[in-house]
Computed example of a mutant assay.
Amino acid sequence: MGVEQAPVRNRYQEVVTRLYHSSNYDFVGVALRENQSPHLTRWIHVLGNTNERWRRIVLRRGIGLAGLVVQTGQPFLNNEILQLDYRNQFYCPIARLEQLTNVVAVPITKAPFNQVVGVLLAGYREHKKEMNDQDIQKLSQYLH
Rank of each mutant, 00 (worst) to 15 (best):
Y12I: 03
Y12C: 11
Q13H: 11
V15P: 15
V16F: 11
R18V: 07
R18N: 14
Y20G: 07
D26L: 06
V28N: 06
G29V: 01
V30G: 05
V30L: 09
E34N: 12
N35P: 14
S37V: 12
S37D: 13
H39Y: 15
L40V: 15
V46A: 09
N49Y: 03
N49G: 07
T50D: 14
T50K: 12
N51Q: 06
R55F: 05
I57F: 08
L59R: 00
R61P: 00
G62W: 06
G62M: 06
G67M: 03
G67I: 00
V69C: 10
Q71G: 02
Q71H: 14
T72F: 06
T72G: 11
T72I: 01
G73H: 08
P75L: 01
N78R: 04
N78Y: 04
N78I: 01
N79D: 12
N79W: 05
L82E: 06
Q83A: 09
Q83Y: 05
Q83G: 13
D85F: 10
D85I: 05
Y86M: 04
R87I: 00
R87G: 03
N88L: 01
F90V: 04
Y91A: 02
Y91P: 04
Y91G: 00
C92Q: 04
P93G: 03
L97S: 05
Q99E: 12
L100Q: 04
T101E: 12
A105R: 01
I108R: 11
N114S: 14
V117N: 10
G118Y: 03
V119G: 07
L120H: 10
L121M: 13
G123L: 04
Y124S: 06
Y124A: 05
Y124G: 06
Y124I: 02
R125I: 01
H127Y: 13
H127M: 12
N132P: 06
D135W: 10
Q137L: 13
Q137S: 14
